[in-house]
């Protein structure tokens, strides 16, 4: 399979000179099993360019099929969907997978296309769209690919995905906070809590269970894509935002025995030069120890072949 990055940014798209090398589009990753239909993870603004590229293939003739795995429905993970050209061509089939919400998924996604916000309602899109609700632990197939999922530590809950195909494994973990300080759920956390106070035992246990689920999902991954929006210092200032940092990602990758870690979901104001520095600094960290860990930092256009291509 081949993994290609179309959007690598977190929170909000950031056009401009300072972000032009890594790219300013929000989260979107294409996983292409050998000779098969693309599997897309997340539908941030990167999806617009991916859609244009897909229109050069079967999607342009209305014969395309794709499955989109949504980590969660925060804007930066869905805002490209109304601009996904294949959705406007009759005959294309688009399957959307996401974690179960309070409302049916189709109703959630419809809101984005409704009239005060966007001129084309979801129901008017020409492609056949179907919605599949997941709960953590659900296992299913997309063609030959085996897909599994587990929950992450993020406000209103996000889902991590493992895709196994062509003799290789890619795992996508965005968005998540570390599993040490705050258990995210439905509450809005106004300001950073003190990280010195001990957590209640049941919270510690729940976080440990969630972390074990992530480590298990990432077990032996050839490529682990991980939310590293923050540096460690930034995380300590904003632990209540639900994002992680490279030190935490490296520890998860080591515990899971992953071979390669990809820094992903860069903070909007992170410049290209800062991303270069972070990568250089953490390459040294990742190289230390008995378990070598290859490190990359996601940029738009990065393509990583895995297993049998």
């Amino acid at each position: 399979m081949r993994v290609k990055f179309w959007g690598v940014r977190g929170s909000i798209p950031v056009p401009g000179r300072a972000t032009s090398r890594y790219g300013g589009n929000t989260s979107c990753v294409e996983v292409r099993p050998k000779g098969a239909a693309p599997i897309i993870i997340d539908a941030g603004t990167g999806l617009r360019r991916l859609g244009k590229s897909l229109m050069e293939e079967a999607f342009g003739d209305g014969r395309g099929e794709t499955s989109i795995l949504i980590s969660h429905t925060h804007w930066d993970h869905v805002q490209g969907l109304p601009f996904f050209s294949p959705a406007y061509r009759a005959g294309n089939k688009i399957q959307i997978y996401a974690r179960q919400r309070d409302m049916h998924l189709e109703a959630v996604f419809s809101q984005q296309n409704n009239s005060p916000y966007f001129p084309v309602p979801l129901s008017s899109l020409e492609a056949t769209m179907s919605f599949h609700e997941l709960v953590e632990g659900t296992k299913f197939h997309i063609g030959r690919a085996k897909v599994s999922c587990t929950r992450l530590n993020h406000p209103w809950i996000a889902m991590a995905y493992r895709i196994e195909v062509d003799g290789a494994v890619v795992v996508y973990c965005a968005d998540t906070a570390p599993f040490t300080d705050i258990l995210f759920g439905r509450e809005f956390i106004v300001k950073a809590p003190s990280l010195d106070e001990p957590l209640p035992a049941d919270v510690v246990e729940e976080l440990a269970r969630m972390r074990a689920g992530v480590v298990e999902l990432a077990r032996g991954a050839d490529l682990l894509i991980y939310d590293t929006q923050f540096t460690k210092t930034e995380y300590l200032q904003r632990p209540h935002w639900g994002h992680s940092h490279p030190d935490d990602a490296i520890q998860i990758a080591r515990d899971a025995g992953a071979k390669q870690l990809c820094l992903f979901h860069h903070a909007p104001m992170r410049t290209d030069d800062e991303n270069d520095q972070i990568l250089a600094a953490y390459r040294t960290v990742a190289a230390h120890g008995d378990q070598p860990l290859a490190l990359v930092s996601a940029y738009e256009g990065l393509e990583i072949p895995l297993g049998d291509e």
Partner: peptide, 12 residues
């Protein structure tokens, strides 16, 4: 810009 943010080297 209209419609959707357009990051990239072509729009700097």
């Amino acid at each position: 810009r209209g419609s959707i943010p357009a990051p990239g080297p072509d729009t700097i």
